[in-house]
């Protein structure tokens, strides 16, 4: 069972060549129905041929499936619409400095996180030309290299966000799942503040919907012990404070699948992922015990996520 079993397939359109192609996310994978032999096109591209935009976007997707920057830029809730058009992407690409563009062509590696080292320059792809952008120059000036890396990352993030809300949530889920395994505990521990912010930023709007509490009064810390976590509501009226401890996996299993608040309950864990039927642990109130209950996807909800209902 996988976190993405609770999500249906979703499509997005990408300008490719002289037309527009569909890319499809299904069962955790991004697929290119218009490019049945994408591997061959990748090789052709590496040898100097034109690489289709669909193939490029699939490469970009793969590079960022464990990139925590996806969580800092991506949506926090369905109402958090991050609307980016392909014309904006083209405009931003056109404003890239020659150096950054060269770095883009040469494919900078992620410098940290689980994805570091997974991405390799494509054999035969051009290297960074000119003295200013030469690897030696960048090695001698780590500040410049970091600036270039971040600028390039911003452009790539724009491309991924341009795929639309449905794929934004699915990519966020993939990132969270990549970090949520027990084998990643040490790496998560080194980046606790980022996970605390990612959890708080996504749980707080859900808590607002659940309890009517001010999202600024909600804090979440990463939960690393066994079990779903913990929750405590204190104070009254405007002085209410909600503190929660949730595992990073909550973001993939629950939030990214549109299951955070269902039928007035807060879902704290997914016991059996599935679409259109799943079994979840849900809380009726902050100080109640969670109950195991079935959830049914009843319709298409906002942001390309299912609308769920508890049985």
């Amino acid at each position: 069972m996988n976190w993405y079993d609770s999500l249906p397939a979703a499509d997005a359109t990408v300008p490719c060549g002289s037309g527009t192609h569909t890319v499809r996310w299904e069962a955790g994978q991004l697929m290119l129905p218009s490019h049945p032999d994408a591997e061959a096109e990748l090789v052709l591209g590496a040898l100097g041929g034109d690489k289709p935009a669909c193939v490029k976007i699939a490469e970009t997707w793969t590079r960022h499936t464990a990139d925590l920057a996806v969580l800092t830029t991506g949506p926090r809730c369905a109402a958090d619409e991050v609307s980016v058009g392909w014309d904006e992407v083209a405009q931003q690409r056109a404003t890239l400095t020659p150096l950054t563009h060269a770095m883009s062509t040469a494919r900078l590696r992620p410098t940290s996180g689980p994805a570091a080292g997974r991405f390799r320059p494509v054999p035969g792809a051009p290297t960074v030309p000119g003295a200013l952008g030469s690897p030696a120059t960048l090695a001698a000036d780590p500040g410049m290299a970091e600036t270039v890396r971040r600028q390039q990352q911003r452009i790539e993030m724009l491309e991924l966000l341009a795929l639309g809300a449905a794929l934004q949530f699915r990519l966020s889920g993939a990132v969270c799942a990549a970090w949520s395994g027990p084998d990643k505990a040490d790496e998560r521990g080194a980046r606790r503040p980022e996970f605390a912010a990612s959890l708080t930023g996504r749980f707080a709007p859900a808590a607002g919907e659940w309890l009517g509490i001010d999202p600024d009064a909600v804090t979440v810390v990463p939960h690393e012990a066994p079990g779903w976590g913990a929750m405590e509501l204190t104070g009254t009226g405007a002085g209410r404070r909600l503190r929660a401890a949730l595992p990073a996996g909550w973001l993939a299993d629950v939030w990214a699948c549109g299951l955070a608040v269902v039928s007035g309950h807060l879902v704290v864990a997914v016991e059996e992922p599935g679409y259109p039927q799943a079994r979840v642990l849900a809380l009726a109130a902050p100080n109640a015990e969670p109950v195991l209950v079935g959830a049914d996807a009843t319709a298409d909800g906002p942001a390309g996520l299912p609308a769920w209902k508890l049985r």
Partner: peptide, 17 residues
């Protein structure tokens, strides 16, 4: 430092909202 970074990132989330 972890506390400081957590606070700062939490504030950033609040400002984003």
């Amino acid at each position: 430092m972890e506390r400081a970074e957590t606070y700062l990132r939490g504030l950033a989330e609040s400002e984003l909202r």
